[in-house]
Design a protein around this nucleic acid. Structure first.
Length: 298
DNA sequence: AATGAACTCAACCGCTCGGAA
DNA sequence: ATTCCGAGCGGTTGAGTTCAT
């Protein structure tokens, strides 16, 4: 037996929204706020599915939705973020204030893909010199660059609230899984099955799924570098260029970032939550310098 | 001016996830 | 532990619009 539909479809309006319907929805949300979408149509007196109301509000009626064409800067950012995130439109949209995931998805599929297919990648090179990855055309999640199978994908993760998540290259995962199992008073969690699983590879030996390639560590309170220190590793330099990505919140202890810096390869994209975005800093070195200046933590 | 092709983008659909019961 | 439900996500569709002939 299948799942019950989100709403009874009989007698509901479909297709484009009318101005009158928009007004009803806006007025209702002004009074009652967002949420409870399932019950909203009945309470507001709309002959629409709750999902439809939610979509209409989020993609069109919300007051902070930005109108007008995507600017060159925005396109530049979309390309960079797509290189890092793949088709994770909501995450990309989260970095473009006022833009919705639907809008970005449409823009990508109608404009950027077309430019790529016409071989006009030069015009799509970002100001930072980043070209869209070859996987962009496939309309699939971004694969790691086959040329860099062991350096890990460049990626930006979701916003972090603390210095929490560390994404590791596959060779580091078993070590870290063991370390977290044997932790002594350190509040560290991870998906052990994922950490110890071999990476999925295709017939050519290329890791073919970014998400499988990644393994997150949740590190509460304790900093990642402290965990490393507690691991039984005779040669700390074995970590060089092995940490694929790190999430650090702007409010996190900046010293943590400093300790991490030797572990992170040049090719790695470090996500420092909004910090690097706000400052237009794309690599760890410049980000690190910014933080040094700002926090005086040396 | 007419018409068909191409394009755009709002809306829909099916699925997954997380939290509550 | 399991089920249910609300919410959100990404892929797809199709009506309306624009463009080319």
């Amino acid at each position: 037996m299948g799942r019950s539909p989100c709403c009874a479809k009989e007698g509901l309006n479909r297709g484009a929204w009318t101005a009158a319907e928009d007004k009803i929805l806006i007025d209702y949300i002004k009074i009652h706020g967002e949420g409870k979408w399932r019950h909203l149509p009945k309470r507001a007196g709309l002959k629409r599915c709750g999902k439809s109301c939610r979509l209409r509000w989020l993609n069109y009626l919300r007051p902070d939705v930005k109108r007008g064409n995507i600017t060159h800067d925005e396109e530049d950012l979309i390309i960079r973020l797509h290189n890092l995130l793949g088709n994770r439109w909501s995450l990309i949209a989260g970095r473009l204030p006022g833009r919705t995931d639907n809008e970005i998805k449409n823009y990508w599929n109608t404009n950027i893909v077309k430019k790529l297919q016409s071989g006009n990648s030069k015009s799509l090179t970002t100001s930072s010199g980043v070209e869209p990855s070859s996987s962009c055309l496939a309309g699939q999640d971004t694969d790691p660059d086959p040329e860099l199978p062991n350096k890990g994908p460049c990626l930006i993760r979701t916003k972090a609230t603390r210095c929490t998540k560390v994404t590791l290259s596959e060779e580091l995962r078993p070590l870290m899984a063991a370390a977290s199992s044997n932790r002594d008073g350190m509040n560290v969690t991870c998906d052990h099955a994922k950490m110890q699983a071999p990476p999925l590879v295709d017939s050519e030996g290329i890791t073919n799924n970014l998400l499988d390639f990644m393994a997150d560590f949740e590190i509460e309170e304790t900093m990642f570098s402290d965990l490393l220190r507690n691991m039984d590793i005779s040669e700390p330099s074995c970590f060089e260029n092995k940490v694929v990505a790190v999430e650090v919140d702007t409010h996190a202890d900046p010293q943590c970032c400093h300790r991490l810096s030797p572990l992170i390869s040049d090719e790695t994209c470090l996500n420092v939550s909004d910090y690097s975005m706000l400052h237009g800093s794309e690599d760890f070195q410049s980000m690190s310098a910014l933080m040094e200046n700002e926090f005086d933590w040396l």
